[in-house]
Design a protein around this nucleic acid. Sequence first.
DNA 1: ATGTCACTTTACAAGTGA
Length: 258
Amino acid sequence: MLKVVTWNVNSVRARSARLDAFLARHQPDLVCLQETKVLDDQFPAPAVEGYRYWSHGQAGRNGVALVSRHELADVQRGFPGDPSPDSARVISASLGDVRVIGIYVVNGQSVGSAEYELKLQWLDALGRWVREAHSPVEPLLVAGDFNIAPTDDDIYDPAAWEGQNLASGPERERLGSLLRWGLTDLMRLHHQGPGPYTFWDYRAGAFHRGWGLRIDLALATQPLASRSTAVEVERDERKPTFGEGKPSDHAPLILTFE
DNA sequence: ATGTCACTTTACAAGTGA
């Protein structure tokens, strides 16, 4: 059995106690973290016995990392062709025969903004790299915060979000091209929509009101997707009353493979 | 849409990004 997690922690230092408790509780093989918001030499080492980390961070924003209780091979930070190479958004590594790419997609701010144009260019570049460097017949996992709700089933109020950033056609089309190449949205192998959601804005009491989005995704090629036995959102981690300290605005996604 | 959070700076609040 293989257990892999993706979690946008919104600062790994602020979430260190929760991350340790999560590791102790679930004993995942590998965790992909996003928005670590920390330089590599200031990354808080996991306190749980057996876990190591590989960080690709920067000060204050972005940042991705892999936390694993196994040795990882061929750890690669960033990717060739990144139009925004100073932003730390991608870390990839091999765990046994599985290649894992942990990603934090450009947020995009609002449709028509410069950030949104960068998001589309970034997604194009990511797609080119994935297609060039990998094959759909090899076991590949692309997991992380995509900042894209794939369909209206992934949004609490699709009408309010129609055409907006996170839900717009052009970004969904970029995601679609990855799926057509040979990646499967693992959540939908096990759960039909609407929901579950993985992100609730801190503002406006969004979590309490059920205003969620599914923007944290795990995509796998067929050799790996065929081994997928469960995909679950650890919704408790979004609760202010759960665990130690404040929650991230994202809940972890737990992937189980046979 | 916006009832928050975490970061940074030269800090003892305000701006930024999400």
